[in-house]
Simulated assay, not measured.
Amino acid sequence: MVKRVEISDNAKEVIDQLRAQHGELIFHQSGGCCDGSSPMCFPKGEFILDHNDIWLGTIHNCDFFISKSQFEYWKHTQLTVDIVKGRGSSFSLEIPLGIRFIIKSRLYSEGETANLSPIKLATEIE
Rank of each mutant, 00 (worst) to 15 (best):
M1H: 09
V5W: 03
E6A: 08
S8R: 07
D9Q: 12
N10Q: 13
V14H: 08
V14S: 05
I15S: 14
D16Q: 14
L18E: 01
L18V: 08
R19A: 12
R19Y: 02
A20C: 00
A20Y: 00
E24Y: 00
L25V: 06
L25S: 08
G31K: 01
G31E: 03
G32Y: 05
C33R: 05
C34Q: 02
C34L: 06
C34E: 05
C34F: 12
D35L: 08
D35A: 15
S37N: 10
S37A: 14
P43L: 02
G45I: 00
E46I: 05
F47L: 12
I48F: 02
I48H: 09
I48D: 09
N52R: 13
D53Q: 02
D53E: 07
D53H: 13
I54S: 12
L56W: 02
H60D: 13
N61S: 13
C62V: 01
D63M: 02
F64E: 05
F64P: 00
F64S: 15
F65A: 01
F65H: 07
F65Y: 14
K68F: 09
K68H: 11
S69R: 10
Q70H: 07
K75Y: 03
T77L: 04
T80M: 13
V81L: 13
I83Y: 09
V84A: 14
R87T: 15
L93E: 01
L93Y: 03
L93I: 03
L93N: 01
E94A: 14
P96Q: 10
L97A: 10
L97M: 15
G98R: 08
G98A: 07
F101K: 07
F101D: 09
K104E: 08
S105N: 11
E110F: 05
P118R: 04
A122W: 00
T123C: 10
E124K: 09
E124F: 02
I125D: 00
